[in-house]
């Protein structure tokens, strides 16, 4: 539905002070519409900054941020409309819940959009279903929920605005494996069902490999590698040179292949490896 493009974008923190830090350095990038794109990189590689540029929370120092070919800063008064189109879930979004019930909190975004009550309640239910929140939880206070449930409620709060581009900064950080899977699967489902573009920021290669179509690798404020999942993971050596690695299971598959096991090239999840090995054994 919507394409996000960065053109020679740079961003500097604390410009003009001795603590000047270049967070983004001449970054050009196109995120393909309707796909799930993972942005991966170490702490301080510029991932989170990039994400805040996408919906106009921060203004780039140089370059342009384009949404469907139009500069989002062209008319700053329209920024609110941009923010409804580009939904952003920040890191640890559970700390922004504030309403009395989960339902009211998820409805907060759509209500700000000025939708009617019927549409709002439809969207709330739909968003809650995406992230796997049971309907009976909707009437509870956000503070009676577990950490993982709160996280899911916060993500649903952004999904309920039905953004054309859904951006999530570390949506799975600090969760147990099961909670992580529920969230990432829900996000993927949201993208597939609504045709929206999804951008996930993470530092976990395993998650990226399992849930993303395209991958962008950030390193020292620059784009280091970008392409489809297969393209990026075929550069295992270069990834290792910046301290990132292909998923462990991919690593294992490569080792097995070297020993003469006829496995396909692209194995990124344990399930895929299991299935391949099973067919081989039979």
């Amino acid at each position: 539905m919507a394409t996000v493009t960065l053109e020679h974008v740079s961003y500097i923190y604390g410009k003009g002070t001795p603590f000047e830090i270049k967070a983004l350095d001449d970054v050009s990038l196109t995120v393909k519409s309707g796909r799930v794109t993972g942005i991966i990189g170490h702490t301080g590689s510029g991932k989170s900054t990039m994400v805040q540029l996408l919906n106009g929370l921060e203004k780039p120092e140089g370059g342009r941020v384009l949404l469907d070919g139009a500069d989002i800063w062209e008319n700053p008064k329209n920024m609110q409309a941009i923010r409804f189109r580009v939904g952003l879930v920040m890191q640890y979004p559970e700390y922004q819940l504030f309403e009395e019930t989960i339902e009211a909190d998820i409805a907060f975004g759509p209500r700000n959009m000025g939708l009617d009550e019927e549409e709002i309640s439809k969207r709330v239910r739909e968003a809650a279903a995406f992230v796997g929140l049971e309907p009976e939880l909707l009437q509870k206070s956000p503070f009676d929920l577990s950490g993982g449930q709160k996280r899911r409620a916060a993500i649903a709060g952004v999904m309920a605005m039905r953004p054309e581009v859904l951006v999530l900064d570390e949506p799975a950080a600090g969760l147990d494996p099961r909670g992580r899977d529920i969230i990432l699967r829900g996000i993927r489902e949201y993208g597939e069902r609504t045709g929206s573009t999804v951008i996930i920021v993470s530092h976990s290669m395993e998650d990226m490999a399992a849930y993303c179509d395209d991958i962008v690798v950030m390193y020292q404020a620059k784009v280091f590698l970008a392409g489809t999942r297969d393209e990026v993971f075929s550069h295992a050596g270069e990834l290792a040179s910046v301290g990132l690695d292909v998923p462990q299971i991919t690593h294992l598959a490569l080792l097995l292949k070297k020993r003469g096991v006829p496995l396909p090239d692209a194995i990124y999840t344990v399930e895929a490896a299991r299935d391949c090995l099973r067919t081989l054994l039979q």
């Binding site: 805040q52 929370l57 923010r83 920040m90 922004q96 504030f98 907060f108 959009m113 709060g157 952004v158």
Partner: peptide
């Protein structure tokens, strides 16, 4: 951080009357 998060959900802190602005602070 919280302000940014609520802005992303469409809160507008810079327009409207006094009451509207005060209400925008609740989140």
């Amino acid at each position: 951080k919280i302000m940014n998060a609520q802005k992303a959900r469409g809160v507008d802190f810079s327009s409207g009357g006094l009451i509207k602005r005060a209400k925008a602070l609740i989140p």
